[in-house]
Amino acid sequence: MASTAQSRIKSISYAKYGYMFIAPFFIVYAFFQIWPLINTFILSFFGNGDAAFGAEAQEFMALDNYKTLLFGGDDRRSNALHDTFVQSFINTVILWVGNFIPQIALSLLLAVWFTDSKLHIPGQGAFKVIMYLPNIITAVSVAALFMRFISNSQTSAANIILQNMGNEAIKFENDPAWSRGIVMFIQTWMWFGNTMIMMMSGILGINPSLFEAANIDGASSGQVLGKITLPLLKPMVVYTLITSMIGGLQMFDIPFLYHTAAGDIKDHLRTVAVFIYEQFRVGNNVHSPQYGVAGAASIMLFFVTAILGIFVFRMNRDQDEARKKAERKALVKEYKKQQKLAKKGGLE
């Protein structure tokens, strides 16, 4: 009795503190995130340019910005914008796939090794610290560092070595294969340690008695990996896939910064996030901010992100359900077979 009274007192007289405590979060979030999101949505229906910067006044354009981005338009400028946008989407996918596959492969391999009780790899703690290190460094500095190593510049390390050997200097940034490869490498370099630690925590969460039982039954490491670790790690891999995909769609820092002449973005490195940034960045010397186009691209990015997230979740759930259905069917079949047999037996 006392406890219900207590809880009633609690819920009646202290509720206002609850509101008070969470109010700052929601006020600030509404002001700095929700309103900007709605504002982006509104801006995407209006013309480009902002009166505050001396551009022409905004006019309502309905879905014209979306139309321009998705299908191009009548004039050359809209067509160029459309081509750039489509290319930026393709670039994003290429760069993401190219950094995700090596990243997940490396981190799974390392996580399996580090958690394998039969392989005593010495100095695990030190390895984890070292492999996570690139993730902590400012992306700007990482890009700057790799640009000193290998870039368009005649004085980058790779070009000096090439010239010392009597070869021509290569404009690495201008070559799609080279520059994309380098960006993928930097992304993998920065993120594989992070993914590895996530995977390790996933593997350590698996019931250790399963591994023990497998060991006692004489399973090889390949069997343990294929039949225990990977199936049980699937939720973790899917989680990593989703977060990495959402992160990959926002990929900005390295593709934006890997340019010797800052701001002069190469067509084969422009991701969707870079495209949006180029459009809205105030003080961009190319043109005045194009809020309408930037807003439309942002909203599309938002929906793609949301759809991808839902899609992957559903795919995973459906696979599970399909497997269960198949199992149920097999059981029913077996049951019917046995009944038939029993009937036959009865007849005989």
Partner: peptide, 23 residues
């Protein structure tokens, strides 16, 4: 709070810049 956790910054930044710098 759980739902908004996944909204990327890049999506809101157009409105953010227009609101902060412009307005």
């Amino acid at each position: 709070i759980l739902a908004v956790m996944m909204i990327p910054v890049q999506v809101t930044s157009t409105g953010f810049v227009q609101f902060m710098v412009g307005t």
